Amino acid sequence: MNRDCYIVEDLLPLYHEGLIQAETTAWLEEHLKSCESCRELSNLSKDPVQKETIRSSVDNDQMFAKINLKLSVYQIIFVALSFFFAMKTSLLNESFGFILTYTILGFVTYFFYQRLIIVVTIAFLPTFIWSLAQSMNETVSILEAISGALFLALIHLLFTIIGSLVAFLLIKFKKEGN
């Protein structure tokens, strides 16, 4: 086998697909006329290789059902935690612990989901609902109750977004480091 035979061997797949230049095709065909071993190799490589179907032992529907169940459980846990944080650490209770807890909630939620809309929903809605419910127990108008609940929920959301921003930057630096 000479050097030309090695070149022909490399070019045969491209030759059979019609992906080489006309000059290269002419040279290759000329070589095939004069070299018996390359001609045999060319004839063998014309036939497509039979592909076997590989069957997976994994039931995809069952696997995705388990994954969706786990994600649903995590979502319920995050929502329950956010309601707990809303009840225990909000400004309504005259506690400033919400600053740390909502920053951590924003960090963990964004790190897990990597979607800001989910972070906003999990942080804003429970606080808004809890604040609105607390305001309804007092003798205030509906408009005052809604505006007060909105104000408190936005303050809590601010610290949640700060935590999300930290998680976003951590994820970005981690990706750039790889």
Rank of each mutant, 00 (worst) to 15 (best):
E176C: 06
Y113P: 00
N2L: 08
I122W: 03
A86H: 10
L11T: 08
A145K: 10
L157P: 03
K51R: 11
E144M: 12
R55Y: 15
Q62R: 15
I122Y: 09
F78T: 02
T160C: 13
L71M: 09
T101E: 03
N93Q: 11
R39I: 01
L32C: 02
F168E: 07
K172D: 09
S57W: 12
N178W: 13
F64Y: 15
F173Q: 08
T103W: 05
F124H: 04
L92F: 13
L170G: 06
F168S: 11
V58R: 14
P13W: 02
I118H: 03
L32M: 03
L32S: 02
T101A: 10
T89Q: 02
M136A: 15
K46S: 07
S57Y: 12
T109H: 00
H16Q: 08
G177W: 04
K88I: 01
A145Y: 11
S34P: 00
K66D: 06
L150A: 13
C35I: 06
E40F: 02
E17V: 01
K51D: 06
I77A: 15
S95A: 05
E9W: 03
P126H: 05
L19S: 11
Y110W: 05
V140W: 05
L91F: 05
K70W: 04
A167M: 08
S37Y: 08
H156I: 03
A80C: 11
R39P: 02
F84L: 12
T24Q: 13
F112W: 05
H156N: 14
C38S: 02
W27Q: 08
I67R: 05
S141E: 12
G148V: 05
K51L: 12
M63T: 07
F173R: 11
Q75P: 01
A26V: 11
L41H: 00
